[in-house]
């Protein structure tokens, strides 16, 4: 599995386009964290995780790389969880760079533009990193799940599709005067994409609450589904 993580890191950091994109995002995050609250800025690294996790499995399948890897003594679960951990490892590096840039910018910006920096304490930065990683655990699991059976970068589209679909269901239910539709939407949304107050939890409030339980279940469910689908998948490149 370590080799799989290493391979993922090499793939992402070996791509100049990816490095440039992540660097720009890290700079934007740092600027935002300096001008507002680092905890919020770092915790909203949604775009970065999409960038890192997109096509994590499907690209290997469509490129034919998967056959050469799975011909080696690598269990399918090791490959899959290696990709998952790889996503998280790259994201952790992104967060570390963003945090370092935030600290740097906190010192430089007041000198350069004379602006005040409302909050760039170490506590706030560490909380931001923790929140971002917690959110990433679920985002990465969802994208990995879609990537096991969709082609190319369709996993990202599917993720947005899921968000839009679940978000629209309550409104649709109200518009159609179908309360059950609205209720079903809320139930699905709170279980598949649970909102957890990580900031509160990091301050010791509600760790064992219902949202945390839903979040654990959602992460587990997406990873379990990804495992089942990927373990049963066939890999071919033609019908000869």
């Amino acid at each position: 599995m370590i080799e799989m993580v290493r391979r993922f890191l090499r793939q992402k950091f070996g791509s100049p386009a990816m490095v440039i994109a992540l660097s720009l995002l890290a700079i934007l995050t740092a600027v935002q964290g300096t001008l507002s609250e680092p905890e919020q800025a770092l915790g909203a690294g949604f775009l970065a995780i999409l960038l890192i996790a997109a096509g994590s499995v499907s690209r290997d399948i469509s490129g034919g790389t998967i056959q050469m890897i799975l011909a080696r003594p690598i269990a399918r679960t090791s490959y899959l969880y290696g990709r998952y951990l790889g996503i998280l490892a790259v994201y952790a590096v992104f967060l570390a760079v963003s945090a370092a840039l935030t600290v740097l910018a906190t010192r430089l910006l007041p000198t350069l533009i004379g602006a005040g920096t409302p909050g760039a304490s170490l506590d706030s930065i560490l909380r931001g990193i923790a929140i971002a990683m917690a959110n990433a655990l679920l985002f990465a699991a969802i994208l990995l799940f879609f990537s096991t059976f969709l082609r190319g970068y369709s996993d990202v589209l599917a993720y947005f599709g899921l968000m839009i679909f679940l978000g629209a269901m309550p409104g649709l239910g109200a518009a159609l005067r179908k309360p059950w539709l609205a209720r079903a939407g809320e139930v699905l949304r709170s279980n598949l994409l649970p909102q957890v107050d990580w900031s509160g939890i990091l301050r010791g409030r509600g760790l064992l609450g219902e949202p945390t339980g839903r979040w654990v279940l959602a992460v587990t469910a997406f990873l379990a589904l990804a495992t089942v689908i990927f373990s049963r998948r066939e890999f071919s490149y033609g019908q000869d």
Binding site: R10, G64, Q67, M68, A71, R72
Partner: peptide
């Protein structure tokens, strides 16, 4: 996996990490 540890495979369509 015990079989895979003793296997070498070359596919017709070579899927490489081109980077």
């Amino acid at each position: 996996l015990a079989i895979r540890a003793r296997t070498g495979y070359m596919p017709e369509r070579l899927g490489f990490d081109r980077d």
